[in-house]
Design a protein around this nucleic acid. Structure first.
Lengths: 190, 190
DNA sequence: TGAGTCATGTAACCAGTTACATGATTAC
DNA sequence: GTAATCATGTAACTGGTTACATGACTCA
């Protein structure tokens, strides 16, 4: 539903190729929206047909040529109209929670490893986000622009979204600690 | 992917009809997995064909007859095998975050109402979860079973999952407060 | 008599995933 | 030579959403 819009936002932040978009969806944008390159190429083609984006062939030396996409007026209008359209607060889909409740009907301790793995993944992501925040928003280079640009909407909004990611990972780590404490109580004594 | 498994867990907790499952997916299970009745009926039929669940016609008075499903041995085995299969830490998909970053290319203040609506939805859900927790886990009736059943895995695991929902809603409310503070700075002064 | 709840479904469509496919260049 | 990266795609499948459809009973 919103992949088009996520692509529009990403291309407005910086024009690029399908391949570059796919990489961004593994990183910054990917913190809150994922997409495979297959999906991106398909949607990009549709967006091109609909006049939402313009393409330009960019010859490169030492690597294959690429197609650089940038947002057209129709795309900007489509984004704007979506932004003004209310969306439903999203419903969560959390496999791990299903597993945790399901563990009651199996061996709960068998889940410990799995939960630890997930906790580690969230720790890794947290570290990654914090590094990004230090680099782009609170580090010395981040202030290169100086305090004379305090109302750069793009940066501020990127930062507040990143802070959301940080808060989410912290919450998950704490929660998984709690899950592990619960699972441990069904532990060896069983 | 895991709808089958969510249904198995729900039916193990308590057998019921497709309709009842659909209602549960609007409440308790729905906190971490949603499904429409159309989807449930379709999957339920497949699960029946695969021998994962057994059906029993239950005549009712004053209301239409229903089909009561309960988990069969094959279903229990399928759940167990899924529980032992590692899953990837899930990737988030958060429309609102796309909108917030997109707001930089439109009027950021137009998003304030939308964010407030979402914050209210999360407040409502939090209140709902807290009421459920008081009722089922920390209230006086919850202790009716007494301290002699301190290791009821089903209850403990349901509770820890609910605590996850509570932590999630609290985190979202705090974050959305931060988002609103940021949006307000691009406010009337603009 | 009309709205609301209980109850079960079909059909069409759309979005997302997985598998397959190609080909150039760079670095070891 | 071979693995990794850059770059772009097609095809088949699966899962989820939306729209449509029916029918009995209850309560105001």
């Amino acid at each position: 539903m919103a992949l088009e819009h996520a692509i529009l936002v990403s291309l407005l932040e910086k024009p690029g190729s399908g391949y570059e978009l796919a990489r961004r969806f593994e990183r910054s944008i990917g913190y809150f929206w994922t997409a495979s390159h297959q999906q991106i190429y398909r949607v990009l083609k549709r967006m091109e047909n609909d006049g939402w984006v313009d393409v330009r062939d960019v010859p490169q030396q030492g690597r294959p040529d690429k197609k650089e996409y940038r947002v057209a007026d129709l795309g900007r209008a489509a984004l704007s109209s979506w932004l003004h359209d209310p969306i439903e607060p999203e419903s969560v889909r959390h496999d791990l929670a299903v597993k945790i409740r399901g563990a009651a009907f199996d061996d709960p301790t068998a889940l410990i490893r799995e939960v630890e793995r997930h906790r580690q993944a969230h720790r890794d992501r947290l570290a990654h986000y914090l590094a990004g925040e230090a680099r782009d928003f609170t580090g010395p280079e981040a202030n290169a622009a100086g305090p004379q640009a305090p109302l750069d909407a793009e940066r501020e909004l990127q930062h507040v979204v990143l802070r959301g990611g940080i808060a989410y990972e912290r919450m998950m780590i704490d929660w998984l600690d709690g899950v592990l404490a619960t699972l441990a109580r069904f532990g060896p004594a069983r």
